[in-house]
Nucleic acid binder design. Structure first.
Length: 258
DNA sequence: ATGGCCTGCAACGCAGGA
């Protein structure tokens, strides 16, 4: 079985002990990380190498930053959406023997109508323009990460309060639906149709204890890869540890390629 | 209770997150 996980760690430096602890128990073959928040020179390669992981990274000071840990060394790496000039490090694609993994930290967008919101929509449009050719080149394509979009109201603890707000607005959701329509499945929804399953909980107001969350961390498998998907789950345990990331890891398992 | 917390960077508060 091939286990692929995605986790917004909210600073790899602040979360290194959690990351190590979680990898030792969950033992993913591939782990996509978002919000590493560090320059490449300060990335903890040694600690992760001791766990048996190669690391590909694309980082910057303070903000954003993505990484992919894998047992096998990638055959190819991309760090940007072609043709979309962006100072912010939010994209890391790696070609592995079993699949092509695209790790994304989609812009948050701040507030509907803001400059950051316009950037988020333009970023998503550039992604949508790129994915058809990536899918054609790599039929076993897995797009994972912090999408900063709750796909529908089942993914929101209080849909009325969040209606038309950032992460839930119609322009964001319609872009996610366009992405899925290119030929992807939201793997979590292959196994769970109910509401109340979240991957992020606000640090404030005891959000986790009260399960006031959103499902914004996604694992989207191309249709041909989705047919080999055995499970997709959100692991809430590390969110309960002391000084946690506000996001939980999403863990998806696949039948190995023939 | 219409706010609540956390991180990095620099610096003694800010930007940003979602």
């Amino acid at each position: 079985m091939l286990t692929v996980a995605s986790w917004n760690v909210n600073s790899i430096k602040a979360r290194l002990d959690h990351l190590v602890r979680w990898c030792e128990s969950a033992r993913p073959d591939v782990l996509a990380l978002q919000e590493t928040k560090t320059v490449d020179a300060n990335f903890p390669f040694d600690a992760l190498s001791s766990l048996g992981y190669h690391a590909e990274i694309s980082g910057q000071p303070s903000y954003n930053g993505v990484a992919v840990l894998s047992r096998e060394v990638p055959l190819e790496v991309v760090t940007a959406i072609p043709g979309f000039a962006d100072e912010q490090k939010r994209v890391l694609g790696v070609r592995l023997p079993q699949l092509f993994l695209l790790n994304l930290y989609v812009p948050n967008g701040s507030a509907v109508g803001s400059d950051k919101y316009a950037y988020k929509l333009a970023w998503l449009d550039a992604l949508l323009a790129w994915l058809p050719e990536l899918l054609a080149a790599h039929p076993r394509l897995l797009v994972v990460g912090d999408f900063n979009i709750a796909p529908d109201d089942r993914d929101v603890h209080d849909p009325a309060a969040w209606r038309d707000q950032i992460l839930c607005s119609e322009p964001e959701r319609s872009r996610l639906q366009q992405l899925l329509a290119l030929g992807f499945k939201d793997t979590f929804r292959l196994f769970e149709a109910g509401d109340g399953c979240f991957s992020w909980w606000d640090y404030r107001a005891a959000g986790f204890r009260r399960n006031l969350g959103l499902r914004i961390d996604l694992c989207l498998a191309s249709n041909s890869l989705a047919s080999a998907c055995h499970s997709s789950q959100i692991d809430r345990e590390p969110r309960s540890w002391e000084k946690p990331s506000d996001h939980a890891p999403v863990v998806t398992c696949f039948e190995p390629a023939p």
